Computed example of a mutant assay.
Amino acid sequence: MEAHQITKKYGITLALKGVSFSMPRGSVFGVIGPNGAGKTTTMRTLLDIIRPTSGHASVLGVDPRKAGPELRRRIGFLPGELILDGRSTGRKLLQHYADISGPVTKGRIEELAERLGLDLSRPVRKLSKGNKQKLGIVQAFMHKPDLLVLDEPTSGLDPLMQQVFLDLVAEARAAGQSVFLSSHVISEIQQAADEVAILRDGKIVTISSVDKLRDSAIRHLRLVASGISVAELRQRLDSLDGLDNLTVSSSGEDVEATATLEGSIPPLVQALSTLSLSDLVLEEPDLEESVLKLYSSPSKEAAL
């Protein structure tokens, strides 16, 4: 799936501002951004639910504006605002969707419902938000589409069901299906996606693999050293690239330092190698903090 300089204008409001990306088949591509960033508009444009003001897209090798039902049957779509017929039971509603989407393997609906803990015999109007979301997930996955387009898919799900959903995504990728996933939950994207695009104010801030994003993430550092003065330790740490928010203070005979590290670890290890350390903590990369920093950075479309 590809997007080329897609813009979307509503009156004087420019919702998308030249969105471009390429998603390899058989991969999981995550789009993350705050509410109002343009995630849903991007998805609806790709699926030809709305038409772009300019630019074009290719979905499963064809232009969605010119494709008909054949393309739509190859896609499983879970909208962010899920509207279901409340008069039917879950089973009847899913059968209706199966008649539209194409062949569904016998027992597939029941298998998905069991994994998600969904009672198909209940009327839809009596289901909780979380159970309605499960219905939406089942209808998207049940016909094993070539492409899954999922807008905020875990909304309303408890942590256990969120993990079941992530398992379904992993299985889809292993089966060669492509998954286009939007979320504002960073941990969800981190676990599910191969690549992630960070969207802000209708523009892509950056596109990166999750591994590269993690490598560039912010780590929190804390150390306690002896046999060195506050000034000496500050001077040594100040010389390191990527070390910010440094505070150094004395505590009896020890000197304590805290900082954030955004960059390579080896220079830090070298700088600390001759110190007499009684405590050293370098936390796991804080991906959420890094992404939030990108939300507020100047927009640019680039790869990390």
Rank of each mutant, 00 (worst) to 15 (best):
A113E: 10
P103T: 02
G130H: 03
G68T: 15
D241L: 13
A302M: 08
L150C: 07
F21Y: 08
A271M: 08
V138S: 00
G33E: 03
L14G: 02
G36M: 14
K203Y: 01
G30Y: 06
L221C: 08
L84K: 13
H220R: 14
G252Q: 08
G130P: 05
A113W: 06
S226V: 08
T206W: 00
G263P: 09
L275C: 11
S58Y: 04
E288V: 01
A175Y: 06
P103N: 03
L287I: 11
E288K: 01
L237E: 14
A302K: 12
R25P: 12
R214W: 11
F29Y: 11
V179A: 03
I100A: 07
K39R: 08
G80V: 03
D244M: 13
D146M: 03
L261C: 09
Q163C: 04
A37C: 10
D238F: 09
D215G: 13
I189V: 15
L268R: 07
V164A: 10
R65P: 13
T7V: 12
L118V: 01
V210N: 09
I204N: 10
D241A: 15
S290N: 10
D279P: 00
G227Y: 12
G86S: 10
G136M: 03
E171P: 14
L71Q: 10
E188M: 07
Q191R: 15
R222V: 13
A98D: 10
S155Y: 00
P285L: 08
R214E: 14
G202T: 02
R74F: 03
A3I: 13
S297C: 07
A140G: 09
V164R: 08
A174Y: 05
E301A: 12
D158T: 01
A231T: 15
A37V: 02
K92A: 14
T154I: 13
Y97D: 05
V255R: 05
P24F: 00
R65D: 12
V149Y: 06
S22W: 00
G26C: 10
L16H: 01
S239R: 15
I137S: 00
V104N: 10
P69Y: 09
K134N: 13
D241P: 11
P153V: 05
S229L: 07
T206N: 04
V281W: 05
A257H: 03
K9Q: 15
D151E: 10
